[in-house]
Design a protein around this nucleic acid. Structure first.
Length: 269
DNA sequence: ATGGTCCCCTGACCGC
DNA sequence: TGCGGTCAGGGGACCA
């Protein structure tokens, strides 16, 4: 469900409602997410003002003076700000009442996570991640350097969080199409110039998707319950069998790295 | 180190 | 309408 644009859209939605706010209560209805929600999470958050809502890769960081809650949306997770009179829905596993809203974490598949860290930058899940794709330290030369000798597909390569974070299955297909690179090409056999194009494509597709509030395929909504509008901008994802926007040839579908991949076999080499 | 596979779990959808 | 099979936007754990 959520890739980086959807997580960033969520972050921007909840931040104004959380920053500077002191949670009076944290209710855990079902602690069994990907990892159990730590028992001390409520006491770490209650009574201490939230100073910032940050993001690293697809993790949201609810920071206070003690540390940070690490929140991951997994495949089906969402955060929403609901009016207090609105009843709790199935799969609302965490609730934090605020002044005029309740922050609710909903996650049917429970691949998401709520963890606590006193030093989030050094947390094992975050410490070894690659650069943020929208920050200046990510560029084509970075991809080129790390890809030398790599035999895995370029698609798996750019989806590897040690290389660059936040590139999920939708946007990987989109960026590779934009850059004209075949997703199955070994990462080590893509040249510097093409990696520069690819890095630019990744930045562009992610930035555009954030601009439009993310991609709603079936159930993504922002924290106010609104869908994202990037779906209509998708050029390949979900369009297998339909004509390529460039050459008209039917787009192909193939499983690469356990995940469905759509591409144009004529435009992508 | 690298690359490939396996899961965690629920719900939507499809074909019969 | 019901049922079984398949697939899904993530990504850590494990194995060779």
């Amino acid at each position: 469900m959520p890739e980086l644009p959807e997580v960033e859209t969520t972050r921007r939605g909840v931040a104004p409602w959380l920053e500077g706010v002191t949670p009076p209560e944290v209710r855990i209805h079902n602690p069994s997410l990907r990892w159990p929600i730590p028992a001390d999470l409520p006491e770490q958050l209650i009574g201490t003002p939230i100073t910032a809502v940050g993001r690293r890769a697809k993790y949201l960081l609810l920071r206070n003076a003690r540390g940070a809650a690490l929140v991951h949306l997994g495949m089906s997770g969402s955060l929403r700000l609901s009016p207090p009179e609105e009843p709790r829905r199935p799969h609302d596993h965490v609730e934090i009442p605020l002044a005029e809203r309740i922050l609710r974490f909903n996650d049917p598949r429970r691949f998401g996570a709520w963890l606590w860290s006193t030093d989030p930058e050094q947390h094992p899940l975050l410490a070894k991640l690659g650069p943020e794709p929208l920050e200046p330290d990510f560029d084509g030369d970075h991809l080129y350097r790390l890809s030398r000798g790599r035999r895995a597909s370029v698609k798996a390569f750019i989806m590897d969080a040690k290389i660059v974070v936040g590139v999920g299955n939708i946007y990987a297909s989109e960026a590779l199409f934009m850059a004209g690179i075949h997703p199955q090409r070994p990462a080590g056999r893509v040249g510097r110039a093409r990696y520069r194009r690819l890095a630019e494509a990744i930045r562009e597709v992610l930035a555009n998707a954030i601009e439009l509030g993310g991609t709603t395929l079936r159930d993504f909504t922002d924290s106010q319950g609104n869908p994202g509008y990037f779906r209509q901008s998708l050029t390949v994802y979900g369009r297998e069998g339909e004509p390529c926007h460039h050459c008209g040839q039917p787009l192909r579908h193939r499983v690469i790295g356990q995940r469905g991949t759509v591409f144009c076999s004529r435009c992508q080499r």
